[in-house]
Design a protein around this nucleic acid. Structure first.
Lengths: 231, 231
DNA sequence: CGTCTACTTGACACGCATCAAAATTGGTGG
DNA sequence: CCACCAATTTTGATGCGTGTCAAGTAGACG
Protein backbone atom coordinates (compact mmCIF):
# COMPACT_ATOMS: atom_id res chain seq x y z
CA UNK A 1 0.00 0.00 0.00
CA UNK A 2 1.71 3.18 -1.11
CA UNK A 3 1.85 6.10 1.21
CA UNK A 4 -0.50 8.97 0.55
CA UNK A 5 0.74 12.49 0.22
CA UNK A 6 -1.43 15.30 1.37
CA UNK A 7 -0.54 18.56 -0.19
CA UNK A 8 -1.81 21.82 1.12
CA UNK A 9 -1.83 25.35 -0.11
CA UNK A 10 1.56 27.01 -0.42
CA UNK A 11 2.21 30.55 0.83
CA UNK A 12 1.19 33.25 -1.57
CA UNK A 13 3.48 33.94 -4.49
CA UNK A 14 3.75 37.02 -6.70
CA UNK A 15 1.12 37.20 -9.44
CA UNK A 16 1.98 35.75 -12.79
CA UNK A 17 1.37 37.20 -16.19
CA UNK A 18 -1.13 35.52 -18.41
CA UNK A 19 -3.24 36.80 -21.28
CA UNK A 20 -3.09 36.12 -24.92
CA UNK A 21 -1.40 39.27 -26.08
CA UNK A 22 2.22 39.86 -27.09
CA UNK A 23 5.14 39.88 -24.63
CA UNK A 24 4.20 41.77 -21.53
CA UNK A 25 6.76 43.74 -19.56
CA UNK A 26 6.14 41.34 -16.70
CA UNK A 27 8.63 38.56 -16.09
CA UNK A 28 8.13 37.33 -12.58
CA UNK A 29 10.54 35.24 -10.60
CA UNK A 30 8.05 32.69 -9.38
CA UNK A 31 6.14 30.85 -11.98
CA UNK A 32 3.35 29.11 -10.13
CA UNK A 33 0.10 30.72 -9.17
CA UNK A 34 -1.14 31.74 -5.79
CA UNK A 35 -2.36 29.23 -3.32
CA UNK A 36 -0.77 26.36 -5.17
CA UNK A 37 1.73 23.71 -4.39
CA UNK A 38 4.22 23.08 -7.11
CA UNK A 39 4.73 19.34 -7.35
CA UNK A 40 7.56 19.47 -9.81
CA UNK A 41 8.65 21.61 -12.66
CA UNK A 42 10.23 20.75 -15.95
CA UNK A 43 12.04 17.55 -15.15
CA UNK A 44 12.70 17.28 -11.47
CA UNK A 45 11.09 14.02 -10.48
CA UNK A 46 10.89 10.49 -11.67
CA UNK A 47 7.79 9.01 -10.10
CA UNK A 48 4.31 8.64 -11.44
CA UNK A 49 1.50 9.83 -9.19
CA UNK A 50 -2.16 9.10 -8.89
CA UNK A 51 -4.67 11.72 -7.84
CA UNK A 52 -6.61 10.30 -4.91
CA UNK A 53 -8.68 13.31 -4.03
CA UNK A 54 -8.86 16.92 -5.09
CA UNK A 55 -7.53 18.40 -8.26
CA UNK A 56 -4.19 18.62 -10.05
CA UNK A 57 -3.45 20.70 -13.14
CA UNK A 58 -0.73 20.32 -15.74
CA UNK A 59 0.66 23.47 -17.29
CA UNK A 60 3.24 25.01 -19.56
CA UNK A 61 4.72 28.49 -19.58
CA UNK A 62 6.00 30.83 -22.22
CA UNK A 63 9.09 32.87 -21.54
CA UNK A 64 7.19 36.03 -20.72
CA UNK A 65 4.98 34.29 -18.19
CA UNK A 66 1.93 33.47 -20.24
CA UNK A 67 0.57 30.22 -18.90
CA UNK A 68 -1.43 27.43 -20.48
CA UNK A 69 -3.07 24.77 -18.36
CA UNK A 70 -3.10 21.72 -20.56
CA UNK A 71 -5.15 19.36 -18.45
CA UNK A 72 -7.18 19.22 -15.26
CA UNK A 73 -6.94 15.94 -13.38
CA UNK A 74 -9.54 14.60 -11.00
CA UNK A 75 -9.41 11.51 -8.75
CA UNK A 76 -7.99 8.43 -10.40
CA UNK A 77 -5.87 10.14 -13.02
CA UNK A 78 -2.14 9.55 -13.30
CA UNK A 79 0.49 12.17 -13.97
CA UNK A 80 4.24 12.67 -13.98
CA UNK A 81 5.16 11.19 -17.36
CA UNK A 82 8.71 11.75 -18.47
CA UNK A 83 10.67 11.68 -21.69
CA UNK A 84 14.36 10.95 -21.24
CA UNK A 85 13.91 11.60 -17.55
CA UNK A 86 12.36 15.02 -18.00
CA UNK A 87 8.77 15.63 -17.06
CA UNK A 88 6.50 16.46 -19.94
CA UNK A 89 4.63 19.15 -18.05
CA UNK A 90 4.58 21.08 -14.81
CA UNK A 91 2.06 19.79 -12.28
CA UNK A 92 0.39 21.74 -9.50
CA UNK A 93 -2.23 20.84 -6.93
CA UNK A 94 -5.11 23.21 -6.35
CA UNK A 95 -5.89 23.88 -2.72
CA UNK A 96 -5.91 20.59 -0.85
CA UNK A 97 -5.30 17.42 -2.77
CA UNK A 98 -4.24 13.91 -1.94
CA UNK A 99 -1.89 12.18 -4.28
CA UNK A 100 -0.06 8.89 -4.01
CA UNK A 101 3.07 7.76 -5.81
CA UNK A 102 2.83 4.60 -7.87
CA UNK A 103 5.02 1.71 -6.84
CA UNK A 104 8.27 1.19 -8.68
CA UNK A 105 6.81 -1.85 -10.41
CA UNK A 106 4.24 0.38 -12.09
CA UNK A 107 6.62 3.05 -13.23
CA UNK A 108 7.24 1.51 -16.60
CA UNK A 109 5.39 3.10 -19.49
CA UNK A 110 4.81 -0.36 -20.88
CA UNK A 111 2.56 -1.12 -17.93
CA UNK A 112 -0.89 -1.54 -19.51
CA UNK A 113 -2.59 0.77 -17.05
CA UNK A 114 0.01 3.43 -17.69
CA UNK A 115 -0.24 3.03 -21.45
CA UNK A 116 -4.00 3.29 -21.15
CA UNK A 117 -3.66 6.48 -19.13
CA UNK A 118 -1.36 7.91 -21.77
CA UNK A 119 -3.96 7.28 -24.45
CA UNK A 120 -6.72 8.76 -22.33
CA UNK A 121 -4.68 11.88 -21.69
CA UNK A 122 -3.83 12.13 -25.38
CA UNK A 123 -7.49 11.88 -26.32
CA UNK A 124 -8.43 14.56 -23.84
CA UNK A 125 -5.69 16.78 -25.19
CA UNK A 126 -7.04 16.45 -28.72
CA UNK A 127 -10.49 17.48 -27.60
CA UNK A 128 -9.02 20.36 -25.66
CA UNK A 129 -6.97 21.50 -28.64
CA UNK A 130 -10.19 21.70 -30.61
CA UNK A 131 -11.69 23.80 -27.85
CA UNK A 132 -8.68 26.12 -27.77
CA UNK A 133 -8.42 26.56 -31.51
CA UNK A 134 -12.00 26.55 -32.69
CA UNK A 135 -14.46 27.40 -29.95
CA UNK A 136 -15.81 30.79 -28.89
CA UNK A 137 -15.48 32.12 -25.35
CA UNK A 138 -19.00 31.04 -24.42
CA UNK A 139 -18.47 27.56 -25.81
CA UNK A 140 -15.18 27.28 -23.96
CA UNK A 141 -16.61 28.24 -20.59
CA UNK A 142 -19.66 26.04 -21.05
CA UNK A 143 -17.41 23.13 -22.03
CA UNK A 144 -15.31 23.68 -18.93
CA UNK A 145 -18.37 23.62 -16.70
CA UNK A 146 -19.65 20.41 -18.27
CA UNK A 147 -16.24 18.81 -17.92
CA UNK A 148 -15.66 19.93 -14.34
CA UNK A 149 -19.14 18.89 -13.26
CA UNK A 150 -18.37 15.41 -14.55
CA UNK A 151 -15.03 15.32 -12.78
CA UNK A 152 -16.12 16.71 -9.45
CA UNK A 153 -19.83 16.40 -8.99
CA UNK A 154 -20.86 14.78 -5.78
CA UNK A 155 -23.55 12.18 -6.06
CA UNK A 156 -26.22 12.36 -3.41
CA UNK A 157 -26.85 9.46 -1.06
CA UNK A 158 -29.50 8.15 -3.44
CA UNK A 159 -26.88 8.00 -6.15
CA UNK A 160 -28.42 10.74 -8.23
CA UNK A 161 -26.10 13.48 -9.43
CA UNK A 162 -26.65 16.68 -7.52
CA UNK A 163 -25.17 18.78 -10.28
CA UNK A 164 -23.49 20.88 -7.68
CA UNK A 165 -19.74 20.73 -7.55
CA UNK A 166 -16.73 22.44 -6.11
CA UNK A 167 -14.84 24.46 -8.65
CA UNK A 168 -11.25 23.79 -7.70
CA UNK A 169 -9.96 26.32 -10.23
CA UNK A 170 -9.88 30.06 -9.74
CA UNK A 171 -11.12 32.33 -12.52
CA UNK A 172 -7.49 32.84 -13.48
CA UNK A 173 -6.92 29.09 -13.70
CA UNK A 174 -10.00 28.72 -15.85
CA UNK A 175 -8.70 31.49 -18.08
CA UNK A 176 -5.33 29.79 -18.42
CA UNK A 177 -7.04 26.51 -19.17
CA UNK A 178 -9.38 27.93 -21.80
CA UNK A 179 -7.07 30.44 -23.45
CA UNK A 180 -9.07 33.44 -22.23
CA UNK A 181 -8.70 36.26 -19.72
CA UNK A 182 -10.06 36.38 -16.20
CA UNK A 183 -12.54 39.07 -17.18
CA UNK A 184 -13.97 37.11 -20.08
CA UNK A 185 -14.37 34.01 -17.92
CA UNK A 186 -16.12 36.02 -15.25
CA UNK A 187 -18.44 37.66 -17.76
CA UNK A 188 -19.40 34.32 -19.30
CA UNK A 189 -20.08 32.72 -15.93
CA UNK A 190 -22.26 35.61 -14.83
CA UNK A 191 -24.10 35.66 -18.13
CA UNK A 192 -24.84 31.94 -17.77
CA UNK A 193 -26.06 32.69 -14.27
CA UNK A 194 -28.38 35.47 -15.50
CA UNK A 195 -29.67 33.15 -18.22
CA UNK A 196 -30.46 30.42 -15.72
CA UNK A 197 -27.97 27.86 -17.00
CA UNK A 198 -26.02 27.73 -13.77
CA UNK A 199 -26.06 29.25 -10.32
CA UNK A 200 -23.46 30.14 -7.74
CA UNK A 201 -23.55 32.24 -4.60
CA UNK A 202 -20.01 31.42 -3.61
CA UNK A 203 -17.66 31.81 -6.60
CA UNK A 204 -16.27 28.32 -6.12
CA UNK A 205 -19.53 26.43 -5.64
CA UNK A 206 -21.19 25.81 -8.96
CA UNK A 207 -24.58 24.36 -9.60
CA UNK A 208 -25.77 23.35 -13.02
CA UNK A 209 -29.43 24.28 -13.42
CA UNK A 210 -29.98 23.33 -17.04
CA UNK A 211 -27.48 20.65 -18.09
CA UNK A 212 -28.95 20.20 -21.54
CA UNK A 213 -28.82 23.84 -22.49
CA UNK A 214 -25.34 24.07 -21.01
CA UNK A 215 -24.13 21.15 -23.11
CA UNK A 216 -25.74 22.62 -26.19
CA UNK A 217 -23.85 25.84 -25.52
CA UNK A 218 -20.64 23.87 -25.16
CA UNK A 219 -20.75 22.39 -28.66
CA UNK A 220 -19.54 18.94 -29.53
CA UNK A 221 -17.02 17.14 -31.60
CA UNK A 222 -18.51 14.76 -34.13
CA UNK A 223 -16.84 11.81 -32.48
CA UNK A 224 -18.34 12.56 -29.12
CA UNK A 225 -21.84 12.47 -30.50
CA UNK A 226 -21.03 9.48 -32.62
CA UNK A 227 -22.25 11.24 -35.71
CA UNK A 228 -20.23 10.71 -38.84
CA UNK A 229 -21.48 11.82 -42.20
CA UNK A 230 -20.28 10.30 -45.41
CA UNK A 231 -21.35 11.00 -48.99
CA UNK B 1 8.98 -6.52 -44.23
CA UNK B 2 5.56 -4.92 -44.13
CA UNK B 3 3.97 -3.77 -47.30
CA UNK B 4 4.06 -0.09 -48.03
CA UNK B 5 0.93 1.81 -48.84
CA UNK B 6 1.10 4.67 -51.23
CA UNK B 7 -1.76 7.03 -50.88
CA UNK B 8 -2.58 9.63 -53.44
CA UNK B 9 -4.89 12.55 -53.64
CA UNK B 10 -8.59 11.80 -53.46
CA UNK B 11 -11.14 13.38 -55.78
CA UNK B 12 -12.31 16.80 -54.80
CA UNK B 13 -14.85 17.06 -52.02
CA UNK B 14 -17.18 19.90 -51.07
CA UNK B 15 -15.52 22.62 -49.03
CA UNK B 16 -15.66 22.42 -45.29
CA UNK B 17 -16.44 25.13 -42.83
CA UNK B 18 -13.72 26.27 -40.52
CA UNK B 19 -13.16 29.51 -38.63
CA UNK B 20 -13.42 30.27 -35.00
CA UNK B 21 -16.80 31.91 -34.98
CA UNK B 22 -20.15 30.59 -33.77
CA UNK B 23 -22.18 27.93 -35.59
CA UNK B 24 -22.15 28.59 -39.28
CA UNK B 25 -25.09 27.70 -41.52
CA UNK B 26 -22.78 25.25 -43.29
CA UNK B 27 -23.01 21.57 -42.48
CA UNK B 28 -21.44 19.65 -45.30
CA UNK B 29 -21.85 16.00 -46.03
CA UNK B 30 -18.19 15.20 -46.51
CA UNK B 31 -15.90 15.97 -43.66
CA UNK B 32 -12.43 15.72 -45.12
CA UNK B 33 -10.75 18.44 -47.07
CA UNK B 34 -9.99 18.62 -50.71
CA UNK B 35 -7.12 16.76 -52.22
CA UNK B 36 -6.88 14.51 -49.24
CA UNK B 37 -7.14 10.86 -48.64
CA UNK B 38 -9.08 9.92 -45.57
CA UNK B 39 -7.24 7.10 -43.88
CA UNK B 40 -9.88 6.41 -41.30
CA UNK B 41 -12.36 8.34 -39.35
CA UNK B 42 -13.49 8.06 -35.78
CA UNK B 43 -12.96 4.41 -35.11
CA UNK B 44 -12.84 2.43 -38.30
CA UNK B 45 -9.49 0.72 -38.21
CA UNK B 46 -7.38 -1.22 -35.81
CA UNK B 47 -3.85 -1.01 -37.11
CA UNK B 48 -1.06 1.32 -36.21
CA UNK B 49 0.75 2.98 -39.11
CA UNK B 50 4.11 4.54 -39.59
CA UNK B 51 4.66 7.50 -41.88
CA UNK B 52 7.42 6.55 -44.30
CA UNK B 53 7.37 9.61 -46.50
CA UNK B 54 5.20 12.68 -46.88
CA UNK B 55 2.85 14.14 -44.36
CA UNK B 56 -0.14 12.96 -42.34
CA UNK B 57 -2.36 15.15 -40.18
CA UNK B 58 -4.62 14.24 -37.29
CA UNK B 59 -7.78 16.23 -36.86
CA UNK B 60 -11.05 16.64 -35.03
CA UNK B 61 -14.29 18.23 -36.12
CA UNK B 62 -17.04 20.12 -34.39
CA UNK B 63 -20.62 19.47 -35.39
CA UNK B 64 -20.91 22.54 -37.55
CA UNK B 65 -17.78 21.67 -39.53
CA UNK B 66 -15.15 23.68 -37.73
CA UNK B 67 -11.95 21.67 -37.92
CA UNK B 68 -8.92 21.48 -35.69
CA UNK B 69 -5.76 19.79 -36.87
CA UNK B 70 -4.20 18.46 -33.70
CA UNK B 71 -0.89 17.21 -35.03
CA UNK B 72 1.20 17.12 -38.17
CA UNK B 73 3.22 13.95 -38.65
CA UNK B 74 6.40 13.64 -40.69
CA UNK B 75 8.41 10.55 -41.60
CA UNK B 76 8.93 8.11 -38.75
CA UNK B 77 5.90 9.07 -36.69
CA UNK B 78 3.26 6.53 -35.72
CA UNK B 79 -0.47 7.05 -35.73
CA UNK B 80 -3.73 5.17 -35.40
CA UNK B 81 -4.01 4.85 -31.62
CA UNK B 82 -7.29 3.54 -30.35
CA UNK B 83 -9.22 3.53 -27.11
CA UNK B 84 -11.64 0.65 -26.76
CA UNK B 85 -11.20 -0.02 -30.44
CA UNK B 86 -12.08 3.51 -31.50
CA UNK B 87 -9.48 5.72 -33.07
CA UNK B 88 -8.55 8.74 -31.05
CA UNK B 89 -8.44 11.07 -34.02
CA UNK B 90 -9.15 11.25 -37.72
CA UNK B 91 -6.06 10.89 -39.90
CA UNK B 92 -5.56 12.23 -43.41
CA UNK B 93 -2.63 12.19 -45.77
CA UNK B 94 -1.72 15.38 -47.58
CA UNK B 95 -1.03 14.93 -51.28
CA UNK B 96 1.19 11.91 -51.77
CA UNK B 97 2.37 10.03 -48.73
CA UNK B 98 3.75 6.60 -48.06
CA UNK B 99 2.64 4.84 -44.93
CA UNK B 100 3.19 1.30 -43.72
CA UNK B 101 1.17 -0.69 -41.22
CA UNK B 102 2.99 -2.00 -38.19
CA UNK B 103 3.11 -5.73 -37.77
CA UNK B 104 0.65 -7.38 -35.42
CA UNK B 105 3.42 -7.99 -32.94
CA UNK B 106 3.91 -4.26 -32.58
CA UNK B 107 0.26 -3.38 -32.20
CA UNK B 108 0.26 -3.57 -28.45
CA UNK B 109 0.37 -0.26 -26.64
CA UNK B 110 2.70 -1.82 -24.13
CA UNK B 111 5.34 -2.11 -26.83
CA UNK B 112 8.11 0.27 -25.66
CA UNK B 113 8.39 1.97 -29.04
CA UNK B 114 4.66 2.55 -29.11
CA UNK B 115 4.61 3.81 -25.54
CA UNK B 116 7.46 6.16 -26.40
CA UNK B 117 5.55 7.44 -29.42
CA UNK B 118 2.53 8.06 -27.22
CA UNK B 119 4.60 10.18 -24.86
CA UNK B 120 6.18 12.09 -27.73
CA UNK B 121 2.78 12.83 -29.19
CA UNK B 122 1.48 13.88 -25.81
CA UNK B 123 4.40 16.25 -25.30
CA UNK B 124 3.86 17.78 -28.71
CA UNK B 125 0.18 18.22 -27.95
CA UNK B 126 0.99 20.12 -24.77
CA UNK B 127 3.25 22.49 -26.63
CA UNK B 128 0.63 22.94 -29.30
CA UNK B 129 -2.06 23.63 -26.72
CA UNK B 130 0.11 26.45 -25.40
CA UNK B 131 0.40 27.79 -28.91
CA UNK B 132 -3.36 27.61 -29.46
CA UNK B 133 -4.31 29.17 -26.16
CA UNK B 134 -1.63 31.73 -25.54
CA UNK B 135 0.19 32.80 -28.70
CA UNK B 136 -0.63 35.62 -31.11
CA UNK B 137 -1.23 35.02 -34.82
CA UNK B 138 2.33 36.01 -35.74
CA UNK B 139 3.79 33.75 -33.09
CA UNK B 140 1.60 30.90 -34.25
CA UNK B 141 2.59 31.18 -37.89
CA UNK B 142 6.28 31.60 -37.04
CA UNK B 143 6.10 28.55 -34.77
CA UNK B 144 4.50 26.53 -37.55
CA UNK B 145 7.26 27.49 -39.97
CA UNK B 146 9.97 26.55 -37.49
CA UNK B 147 8.27 23.25 -36.78
CA UNK B 148 7.62 22.35 -40.41
CA UNK B 149 11.13 23.29 -41.47
CA UNK B 150 12.42 20.84 -38.86
CA UNK B 151 10.07 18.12 -40.05
CA UNK B 152 10.50 18.52 -43.76
CA UNK B 153 13.69 20.33 -44.57
CA UNK B 154 15.88 18.60 -47.06
CA UNK B 155 19.52 18.45 -46.20
CA UNK B 156 21.87 19.16 -49.06
CA UNK B 157 24.35 16.54 -50.22
CA UNK B 158 26.95 18.02 -47.91
CA UNK B 159 24.59 17.42 -45.01
CA UNK B 160 23.99 21.10 -44.34
CA UNK B 161 20.38 22.15 -43.94
CA UNK B 162 19.13 24.05 -46.94
CA UNK B 163 16.35 25.67 -44.97
CA UNK B 164 14.11 25.18 -47.94
CA UNK B 165 11.24 22.81 -47.50
CA UNK B 166 8.02 21.69 -49.06
CA UNK B 167 4.98 22.96 -47.23
CA UNK B 168 2.65 19.99 -47.36
CA UNK B 169 -0.20 21.95 -45.82
CA UNK B 170 -2.44 24.38 -47.64
CA UNK B 171 -3.15 27.76 -46.08
CA UNK B 172 -6.47 26.31 -44.94
CA UNK B 173 -4.70 23.41 -43.26
CA UNK B 174 -2.32 25.79 -41.55
CA UNK B 175 -5.28 27.82 -40.37
CA UNK B 176 -6.99 24.71 -38.99
CA UNK B 177 -3.77 23.69 -37.29
CA UNK B 178 -3.10 27.09 -35.72
CA UNK B 179 -6.63 28.11 -34.85
CA UNK B 180 -6.70 30.98 -37.33
CA UNK B 181 -8.34 31.82 -40.64
CA UNK B 182 -6.87 31.38 -44.11
CA UNK B 183 -6.63 35.13 -44.56
CA UNK B 184 -4.72 35.68 -41.35
CA UNK B 185 -2.27 32.92 -42.21
CA UNK B 186 -1.71 34.38 -45.67
CA UNK B 187 -1.21 37.87 -44.28
CA UNK B 188 1.34 36.67 -41.74
CA UNK B 189 3.29 34.68 -44.30
CA UNK B 190 3.44 37.62 -46.69
CA UNK B 191 4.43 39.98 -43.91
CA UNK B 192 7.28 37.66 -42.94
CA UNK B 193 8.26 37.61 -46.61
CA UNK B 194 8.29 41.41 -46.82
CA UNK B 195 10.34 41.56 -43.63
CA UNK B 196 12.91 39.14 -45.00
CA UNK B 197 12.29 36.32 -42.53
CA UNK B 198 11.25 33.85 -45.19
CA UNK B 199 10.83 33.67 -48.95
CA UNK B 200 8.59 31.79 -51.31
CA UNK B 201 7.82 32.15 -54.99
CA UNK B 202 5.62 29.10 -55.10
CA UNK B 203 3.09 29.07 -52.23
CA UNK B 204 4.14 25.58 -51.19
CA UNK B 205 7.90 26.00 -51.32
CA UNK B 206 9.17 27.80 -48.27
CA UNK B 207 12.64 29.04 -47.58
CA UNK B 208 13.76 30.32 -44.22
CA UNK B 209 16.06 33.30 -44.68
CA UNK B 210 16.57 34.30 -41.06
CA UNK B 211 16.07 31.29 -38.78
CA UNK B 212 17.06 33.15 -35.64
CA UNK B 213 14.67 36.01 -36.10
CA UNK B 214 11.96 33.56 -37.08
CA UNK B 215 12.47 31.54 -33.91
CA UNK B 216 12.47 34.69 -31.84
CA UNK B 217 9.13 35.61 -33.41
CA UNK B 218 7.80 32.16 -32.58
CA UNK B 219 8.29 32.52 -28.82
CA UNK B 220 9.31 29.69 -26.56
CA UNK B 221 8.12 27.66 -23.68
CA UNK B 222 10.39 27.80 -20.69
CA UNK B 223 11.03 24.11 -20.86
CA UNK B 224 12.22 24.29 -24.43
CA UNK B 225 14.85 26.85 -23.61
CA UNK B 226 15.71 25.10 -20.40
CA UNK B 227 15.16 28.25 -18.41
CA UNK B 228 13.48 27.86 -15.08
CA UNK B 229 13.35 30.68 -12.61
CA UNK B 230 12.83 30.15 -8.93
CA UNK B 231 12.72 32.64 -6.08
C1' DC C 1 -12.47 46.53 11.25
C1' DG C 2 -8.56 47.00 8.12
C1' DT C 3 -6.05 44.66 4.62
C1' DC C 4 -5.37 41.46 1.04
C1' DT C 5 -6.87 38.76 -2.75
C1' DA C 6 -10.32 37.12 -5.80
C1' DC C 7 -14.05 38.41 -8.35
C1' DT C 8 -17.09 41.53 -10.85
C1' DT C 9 -18.39 45.24 -13.85
C1' DG C 10 -17.86 49.09 -17.15
C1' DA C 11 -15.57 51.76 -20.90
C1' DC C 12 -12.61 51.42 -24.52
C1' DA C 13 -9.24 49.55 -28.01
C1' DC C 14 -7.40 46.49 -31.20
C1' DG C 15 -6.30 41.93 -33.30
C1' DC C 16 -8.19 38.97 -36.01
C1' DA C 17 -12.51 37.33 -38.27
C1' DT C 18 -15.63 38.43 -41.91
C1' DC C 19 -16.98 39.75 -46.40
C1' DA C 20 -15.72 40.69 -51.02
C1' DA C 21 -13.03 40.49 -55.05
C1' DA C 22 -8.82 40.23 -57.71
C1' DA C 23 -4.63 37.54 -58.79
C1' DT C 24 -2.27 33.26 -59.10
C1' DT C 25 -1.85 28.39 -59.56
C1' DG C 26 -3.27 23.71 -61.14
C1' DG C 27 -5.39 20.64 -64.04
C1' DT C 28 -7.67 19.16 -68.36
C1' DG C 29 -8.60 18.95 -73.04
C1' DG C 30 -7.91 20.66 -77.53
C1' DC D 1 1.50 25.05 -76.36
C1' DC D 2 -2.68 27.53 -75.26
C1' DA D 3 -7.58 28.16 -73.61
C1' DC D 4 -10.52 27.46 -69.91
C1' DC D 5 -12.32 26.42 -65.34
C1' DA D 6 -11.82 25.39 -60.48
C1' DA D 7 -9.36 25.90 -56.40
C1' DT D 8 -6.10 28.36 -53.83
C1' DT D 9 -3.91 32.41 -52.46
C1' DT D 10 -3.66 37.21 -51.89
C1' DT D 11 -5.30 41.78 -50.80
C1' DG D 12 -8.49 45.39 -49.16
C1' DA D 13 -12.34 47.30 -46.31
C1' DT D 14 -14.99 46.72 -42.34
C1' DG D 15 -16.84 44.92 -37.93
C1' DC D 16 -17.03 42.18 -33.87
C1' DG D 17 -15.34 39.46 -29.98
C1' DT D 18 -12.46 39.55 -26.66
C1' DG D 19 -8.38 41.72 -24.54
C1' DT D 20 -6.96 45.81 -21.85
C1' DC D 21 -7.40 49.19 -18.39
C1' DA D 22 -9.59 50.82 -14.40
C1' DA D 23 -12.55 50.98 -10.53
C1' DG D 24 -15.57 48.95 -7.37
C1' DT D 25 -17.48 44.80 -4.45
C1' DA D 26 -17.18 40.78 -1.76
C1' DG D 27 -14.95 37.20 1.20
C1' DA D 28 -11.07 35.59 4.07
C1' DC D 29 -8.21 36.41 7.90
C1' DG D 30 -5.90 38.60 11.35
Amino acid sequence: MPETLITTAAPAAPPRASSIRPPRPASRSRVVGENLTLLYEGGRNRALYRVVDGCVVLSQLLNDGRRQITDVLGPGRLFGFTIDGRNIATAETLSIARIEPLGDADLNATNPAVASELKTTLHRMQIHATLLGRKTASEKVASALVELSRLFNRTGRNGAARLSFHLHLTRADLADWLGLTVETVSRCLNRFKREGLIDFSHPKTMRVLDPERLEATAGFTRQQTGETTRP
